[in-house]
Structures are given as C-alpha cells and as structure tokens.
Design a binder for these strands. Structure first.
Lengths: 331, 331
DNA sequence: TCTAGTGGCGGGATCGTTACCATCACGCCC
DNA sequence: GGGCGTGATGGTAACGATCCCGCCACTAGA
C-alpha cells in the first residue's frame, strides 16, 4: 500500500480510503490510486484490514451436509442477502454430528466472524458456551429450539409432519408407516418422527409402523431398502411417510419395482419439496419448508443485528406448506 | 494472549507456542497455558496469526453451483484431504458465469489463500492474470484446459460423452438426440455437446438432433420440457443423451407421462452418475466422473505443492467410467 | 478582517499474533 | 574446569491495514 501511495503521489491513508470507497477522497486522488494499484498488481489484504478494524466481513455458517438441495437453497438465500453488504460466508458442515459441530464452531470462531448461523437447535453445552462468549449475533435455523441461543428462523418439524399425517388420514388412509433415520443423530428427523407419532395418536391410529433406515442422511437407496422391508413385514400398509423426499422417492421406486400401485395401494409422502418430488411419476406429496426463504430471513436478521436495530432475540417462524400431489390421492 | 501469559506465569511467546502445539513447550507450561485459556474463555485469533505468519490456512475453491451433488462430492473430497493439515475451505460459487468467477476470484484472493481450486478450464484474461500474480498453487478441476494455469485434475467431457454415444450405437440406436444447455455459459456442457457431435460424425450418423434446454444448470423440469419438445418435433428419435442425469431423469419422466417405453422405444442416457441414476425405474445409463476422487486428488496435489514437492505443473487425468443400465438396453 | 466550519489529506500508533534472535540452565565430554 | 550442544523460554520488532487526531486550504458569514 505504501508503494501505491508513493506511485500515486499520496499518503497510505489516502490509498486506504480510496479502497474503502467511502467518498471522502477527491476524484483525482481516487483515480491515481486505482491506476497505481492496477499497475503494481496490488491485491488488497483483508487479513490486515480485519485485524486492525476488528471486522472480518465473515459470517460463519454450519450445515449438516453439503450435499443436500434444501440446505443449498438456504445457503443461496443467505449468500444473496449478505453479499450486498460485502459479507462473505465461511462454511462448515457437521455430518449431522453435534460433536463435530462443536469442533467446527470453535474453529470458525477463530476467524472472528461477525455473525454465526447454525442449523438446528441442538448443540453441546460447550458449543453453546462458545457462541455465548463470542458475543456476536447467532441465528439458529431449520428448527424451533426449546432453548434458543439467539435469533431463530425456523419451523416445527413435528407440526409439519403432523400436517402430512392429517392429510393422509383425510384421504382415507389408516395403516400409515414412517420411514426415518437413527434417532440419536438427526434431530430434525427425530422431530419429524415425533410429529408423526403424535398425529397418529391424535387420530387414534396405530403409530408403531416405524422403519429405521439408518443414520442420516438417508439416501434414496436406503429409502428403497426400508420400503422393501416394510412391504415384507407389514404388507397391509396403505400409506408411507418418509423423513425426506429422497427416501420417499426411493420408496416409490421400490413400489414400482415390486409392481405395487402408488397411490392406489400405497400412498407415499416425503418432506422438503425437492425438485424430484414435483416431477417424478407419480409426483410426490410433500412439505415445502421454504429453504431459500429461511436463508433470506436469516440474512436479513443478521444485517439488522449488525446495525444494532435488533435489541432482543427474535424468532421468525416459517410456515411450511403442504404440497398435495398424486402420490397420496385417496384410495 | 498476554493475559493468559500472566495467568499461566509464562511469556506470551510460550502461549503462542503452546497453541501451535509444536511440542517445544514443556508439559507443565502447556498445561498451565491451556488451563488459563480455558478460564479466561480465550479464543485464538486466526486473523492476527495469518497476518504475522503470512499463512491463512485457507484454500479458496470456486464451483459453478452450490446445489449440485457432483460438486458437493468434490468438495467433500477436497475438504477431507485438506482438513488433516488444518486447511479450511473458503468457498464461492459462480453461477456458471466466467465474469462472476473473475469477481469471485478477486475477492477470494484478498483473503490470502494458500492455494486456489477453480472448476473448469475457461476463465477471463483478468482472472488468469490474478491467479498468476497470486503466486500460489492453482488447481483446475473437472476439465482438461487447453491452456492450464497450473495443476489440473480433470477429464475430457467430450471424450466421456463420446463413449456414451459409442455405447448407444453399439446397442443399435441410430437416431440419437442431445439435450443440453446454452452454449455460451456452461463450458463443460458445451464440451459434452461437442463430444456428442464428434462421436455421431465418427459413426456417420446425423448429429443435428440438438435440443437447447436453456441456461445452466438444467433442471429436471427443463429436461422434461426438452424431451417433450423433442418427441413432438422428431418423434422417430430412438435415443437421447442428456447433459446431466438430472435432465435425463426429467426426460425419462416425460416419456413415462407420454406412455413412451424406455428403453424399448427410446433409450435415455445421462451424465454424472448421480444417486438418482442408479435407483430410478428404469435405472439410467450414465458416466461416472468420480467427483469425490477429483476432490481428493486436488487436495493431494495442493498438499504436495505446499510442501514444495511439486516443481512442475501436473495434470492428473481422471478416467470416467460408463455405467450401462437398463435405460439404454438394445432396441 | 476575523472566526468558524468543511473537505481532503497525512502522521503515528496500533490490532494480536509470530519470526527472529538471544538467553539460560543443564549435562556431557575432553 | 572450560567448552559446547540441546531444550525451554523470553524480548522485540514486525505483518499490512485502519483508527484517531491534527493540519491545511478554502469558503461563508459577521
């Protein structure tokens, strides 16, 4: 920067101001600085800037998996909302493991992010303590935590899943099964299963057709295997609710392979409104939790919080919508 | 850090060394430092460390889209390989736009990454210049650039697509169409189309059944629309090659909706070996380019380069494999 | 003519860590 | 006993920006 100052015939301070583009530099000086910078191939050093100004322009984000279209949509929403303010996302993924999340959070905080977005509402005590001490805006997304750390943009996975059950019951289904994951790790999956059981109980129906499809994320193939298991063990099942559209699609294909008519003999429903749900044959009934909007709202909350316009912890409830499609048409 | 030094009864230098964990600190001092740090809730500041040591421990990565299972697999491979050395990924996505890539690269370089991974081999001149001047290891992936910037881990998209055509021809297909994207933006898509045309020419077949499905990334729905278009305009088509498995699946569903038998009347093939290709009914013939391995190899190259063990620019060719499945069985 | 206000710019200290030396205790060997 | 290698530790000056303050020229109003 000193070199540029020399070449442009100004002080380093003016160069710094020129790069901040805050308009307090004369046009002549601005142009001279930019010309000199271009000539010397200067690349601004955010590291030094971050140290001195104590502003990293990072927002740290943790998601369970990088390979998930729903979380990718949320990330896009976040990134779009933050880009306008020059904030960059620092991403990490947890593999659906709260211990990995703890390590990840510790590592991300070393970079001094301006804010932190974490997926889910379940964390280790140490992770909570770290976030607390960091004294930056924290947003939990994709869930409604019992004990929020800071702000929240989410929805009740249990309630959303309950709406699917209500719909299936209204369509005349009674022997409804649930295909989901290992209870210990995927807390959102567990919430959905809880929502399923609660809704079945509410309708006075048997809620014991629970198929464990293994640890998250549950693949299409695992959904198919679970469906095969279900059809073998409980062949009179007339509807299946899956923890996500991907396993639901796997289940659907298993029905196709076995020549079982969907929805005539078995209705199938998923969760997430992935692209595949709308286009597969028959299209899948599912829940749209508006992942992109979750990201946008989280970004908006962060911007407000950084402006000091958000005094109290805010919870923004997203209302997921049921998408009724052919896969669950009345029997 | 000074506070910790005081509390632990050592010098700041010893605290620094204790956190680097390079083993030159006595066990007693190490323990004292860690205890003091825990007590004070100290969080190491990577920003200052990066500035002074000129090591950011960042590896910058650009991908076209964050919502793509293939690139996600590559990212996982990268991240796994780099994590062992304490390197963190700084991610950006370009939306399949070389101009956006240029801006992104400029922004990422401000963070002083130790190395840079860029997807694809087509870049603006300014982007090339920036990467050149940065004087860090550069790895281009998912392509075999005509004029590599540095290292390469990739494959020929054209040749891989040619292999699909060869297979279809061997199965007796002759009137083969290609469903792909806008030529201007998605260079890998364009390469695949080129490979399609070249292979058709090689077999003396008509290579004019080219359906443009719009700008990348091409969705399942766009694949379906393109298939509908194709079936309306060229109903005698007996095979379709799609730029990716997602559009191929869309095309497959369109056939199902129109009651057109796959593979009996039309064979369908995709690209990428996404999970859906193996499980849909019928399963899709496709090309597996080993996205996870691309990430692993790129990480390995970076580690070698950072160790100074890589003197010359290295190109690592990945050999994609044809996955023959029912969707392309002989007519 | 003088004072106060304003816009543009410069100088020096500094953000929190680490590179680079210097120091010191200790043990070993000739 | 002196020299010297080794392992642990400390002191000081940076890394490259920016914060804070001050300076100067110029204008406007009294």
């Amino acid at each position: 920067m000193i070199d540029i100052a020399r070449l442009a015939g100004v002080s380093p301070m003016t160069v710094s101001r020129a790069f901040k583009a805050d308009g307090t530099v004369s046009e002549a000086a601005q142009a001279a600085v930019m010309k000199a910078a271009e000539e010397l191939g200067y690349v601004f050093d955010s590291t030094a800037s971050a140290l001195r100004s104590q502003r990293s322009d990072f927002v740290a984000v943790t998601i369970p998996s990088i390979n998930n279209a729903n979380f990718a949509d949320t990330l896009r929403g976040l990134s779009e909302g933050l880009r306008a303010r020059g904030l960059q996302i620092l991403l990490g993924y947890t593999d659906y493991d709260v211990l990995a999340e703890e390590t990840l959070i510790a590592q991300l905080l070393r970079r001094r992010p301006e804010a932190m977005v974490v997926t889910g509402g379940t964390h280790t005590d140490r992770a909570r303590a770290l976030l607390d001490k960091a004294a930056i805006p924290v947003v939990e997304i994709w869930d409604l935590p019992a004990r929020p750390i800071g702000h929240v943009v989410g929805f009740s996975n249990a309630a959303a899943m309950g709406a699917v059950v209500d719909h299936l019951v209204a369509e005349g289904r009674r022997r409804i099964a649930f295909i989901g994951g290992d209870a210990a790790r995927d807390t959102r999956g567990t919430d959905r299963r809880r929502g399923f059981v609660a809704a079945m109980d509410r309708h006075g129906l048997d809620a014991t057709r629970l198929i464990d499809a293994g640890p998250p994320p549950i693949s299409m193939a695992e959904g198919a295997a679970a469906m095969a298991d279900l059809l073998a063990r409980l062949p009179d099942t007339d509807a299946v609710v899956c923890v996500s559209d991907l396993s639901a699609f796997g289940a659907l294909t298993e029905c196709q392979r076995q020549g079982i008519a969907v929805p005539d003999r078995v209705a199938v429903a998923g969760f997430g409104d992935y692209e595949i749900a709308a286009i597969c044959v028959p299209p899948l009934t599912t829940i749209n939790p508006f992942p992109h909007r979750i990201g946008q709202e989280a970004a908006a909350l962060i911007l407000q919080a950084l402006d000091g316009k958000l005094t109290a912890a805010t919870t923004m409830r997203i209302t997921p919508e049921l998408r009724v499609r052919t896969s669950s048409d009345g029997a």
